[in-house]
Design a protein around this nucleic acid. Structure first.
Lengths: 111, 111
DNA sequence: ATCAGTTACCTCAACCTTCGATGTAATGTA
DNA sequence: TACATTACATCGAAGGTTGAGGTAACTGAT
């Protein structure tokens, strides 16, 4: 409630979704929960961002989906990484690392 | 040329510009140069992103500008941080740190 | 039986930023 | 003369996030 939430920058959500799915298949709602828990409440995936993200990732061939029964016994759409998705995750991690390294340099210059 | 450039995520450029100006006043072109040098060629600010960013930051009252003679003896628009800009920079740094910390958690979970 | 809360999916318009292209103009240099 | 650099600017296209709204089924409590 009170903790000021930072915005998730453009493109970052895709990477986080791919990362979550690298731990195994999950449905949309579950991905949001994983993200929330694993980040210790820091990341709160908006449903209005998450579902479109899943759709475009699937359309790009980075994910595939099928309907299965969820842990609660209800039908849910489970997503899993494709080979291309794994590769893309590696690429985006690498980009992220370069970006954060650059920002670190920028902040540390001129102490 | 060959080094694949990562995109600067939405909102990040503003923070980087503020940070550059926290080192002292500079004109747009100079900010781009500082960014490029300080980041060791990793960040390449697009002029089509940079000038609009400067304009909106000034409009928000985070920067102020005046025309002065540049190092090369030509007229240039020098920007400098306002008090509000300094505060905003602190806020955005804090957000950035929370974001990167969260992403680090997400990546490290499940090694 | 009803009400609230949770699980689980989805869509849409508004907003904002980045990108790449394009344009102007002055200076320096080969 | 011609090209690269400095230095400003604008514009449309593209793309993703947000917040709001909507559907539906299941659970537990009153």
């Amino acid at each position: 409630m009170s903790s000021s939430r930072f915005p998730i920058p453009q493109g970052t959500l895709d990477m986080l979704v791919l990362q979550m799915l690298s731990l195994g298949p999950a449905h949309g709602y579950g991905i949001a929960q994983r993200l929330h828990q694993v980040s210790r409440e820091a990341v709160q995936a908006n449903q209005g961002s998450l579902y479109p993200a899943l759709h475009r990732l699937e359309q790009k061939g980075l994910l595939k989906s099928d309907w299965r029964e969820s842990e609660t016994g209800r039908e849910a759409k489970f997503y899993s990484l494709t080979r291309a998705g794994e590769k893309q995750l590696a690429v985006e991690k690498e980009s992220w690392n370069r970006l954060t390294a650059a920002v670190r340099l920028i902040f540390n210059e001129g102490r």
